[in-house]
Design a protein around this nucleic acid. Sequence first.
DNA 1: CTGAAAGCGCTTACAG
DNA 2: CTGAAAGCGCTTACAG
Lengths: 346, 346
Amino acid sequence: MAGARAGIRDVAEKAGVSVTTVSLVLNGRAGANIPPETQARVLAAAESLRYRPNSLARGLRRKRTDTFGLISDEIATTPFAGALIQGAQDAAWEAGVVLLIANTGHAAALEARAIDVMLERRVDAMIYAALFHQVIEPPPAIRELPAVLLDARAKDASLPSVVPDEAGGAEAAVTLLIRSGHRRIGFVNSWGDLPAAGERFDGYRRALTAHGIAVDPALVAHVDHTVPPAGDEGAARLLDRDDPPTALFCFNDRLAMGAYRAIRHRSLRIPDDISVVGFDNQEQIAAWLDPGLTTVQLPHYEMGCWAVEHLVVALQSSTDLGDPPVQRREPCPLVERASVGGAGRP
Amino acid sequence: MAGARAGIRDVAEKAGVSVTTVSLVLNGRAGANIPPETQARVLAAAESLRYRPNSLARGLRRKRTDTFGLISDEIATTPFAGALIQGAQDAAWEAGVVLLIANTGHAAALEARAIDVMLERRVDAMIYAALFHQVIEPPPAIRELPAVLLDARAKDASLPSVVPDEAGGAEAAVTLLIRSGHRRIGFVNSWGDLPAAGERFDGYRRALTAHGIAVDPALVAHVDHTVPPAGDEGAARLLDRDDPPTALFCFNDRLAMGAYRAIRHRSLRIPDDISVVGFDNQEQIAAWLDPGLTTVQLPHYEMGCWAVEHLVVALQSSTDLGDPPVQRREPCPLVERASVGGAGRP
DNA sequence: CTGAAAGCGCTTACAG
DNA sequence: CTGAAAGCGCTTACAG
């Protein structure tokens, strides 16, 4: 199929120079040493032979592959993986590096094999990604190379990491509600022991406190966010109080989807009678709800970029990734659509 | 960080044998030629030195890398990319091959560069993936290697390809509706010139015809499936007829989400008054709608598997990928949830 | 049964 | 300004 590929020797021959010269000009290290005409001849020869340098040989010699390994949870099961990988990919591309991706579902045995494969392939660095913000114990083998944690962080902060600024995002969401005139703001939160749940609550509290509003525990409902009726039920609990909230902040967009139903079911209108804000900005849901859901963006794309960029600079500065390892919080911007209005009921 | 890695020579030295022997036993090609004790010694030495063969050197020598390139559209923008990649990944893993993934958004220039990079890295084969079923003209450079098209096919069928069996999926969906007693089945279809739209309509017609039901053009609404109110409007058009359908088959799950709203808005209940079936099985939507949406699965995972498996056998049989290139249709299974009931209104 | 040696296709001191 | 040569770390005929 391929036919015999042209090698650097063929190019040298055709251009009438040594392979050294070819290598130099093709790698842009010719400088002023090699006359322009010679360089032109080399380029022309390479072009006409459709020469493609063998990156294996090059990597072997250079002892670097311009390849990063990316170990992640099962990407099929979450809509966020795409953005995360795309961000990493785009940044990698920009830097001339290629990504080797393995999806292990974080099964220890698979993971160990995946890391082995990556080490055998001599990746220059590793990225270890979770698919939702987690505090983890990364597999030790990962430390054989420069590594960063993505949407995850080590308990002891011993590895650089990037996670969403959950609290900041939540604070922005609730502040928007307050600015729109709401004072009684319900929070349908996850009952799970997740960084996201705890930190989003922190943001909720921070926003209220900053505006002199007391946190009313009766206004926060905890639900199992992994199961469909969660949003409906959480919202119902809040809406059916004697003094219901005029706005609902939901742990995520899927919960908001349930809240929409609960609200409609009570013949209330969004945003006239009640406002709602979600979290995640899950495009397929938030943009397709009616009215469009105002929500907070999870910065998967940006975190993906950051991870590879951090590694790239660490490698070229051959610094040891910064000491102490940077623990980055990526901002979560507000995405305004149509589900927030002025405080409805007096 | 890494320290000097052990090489094959170190292992040979430690085991007191030649590198030839080490290579042979580590690659399982020792056979009966090398006494078990020697083999054990080699294995032990490799283990204790944490020897990891350098796959660059190996690939260079062997002239194969056990790596496939996967060129795809922007994976961030679709929820299906994850499954597709995961399928390819899992099959690749199973076969001992690694995937190099590039997301080009199918921009010609980017794509050409991506293919170049993959050829330089000496991938053994290429997969070219679209993110919805398309008929395309693949970039010529892809043909330098064994290649298959994924969720896409060439006009002239000159490359192996795998796409969903859209018609079969639609037929199964509509047949379910008919078996449930429905005779007037509306179809909210896309008005786009997509293989999916045309073929799903074929399946719709096939199912009706097979059961002696005439296709009533008044029962199919064409909408712009890329914009939010599409589902609501398409469903409304059908529901507001004098003789409305008792069931709605929707081009996709997002449209079904709109149809749910239109139905609720008319105070009809699903599935008691009207049944609805979607297409895609977009987990985040279908499972979270109330009631859960019965829909048709798009087999992205399976298509991903098929693509790499096809390549793997083609490579090892060193056959030329089958002549003519196989054009596979991957089945689209029905996923039953709770949105289909018996024909409601007489 | 095992080893010495060539060679995969590059890059990089080093020499001139 | 340019080239001959060594070497990256493997695998694989080939010889014994």
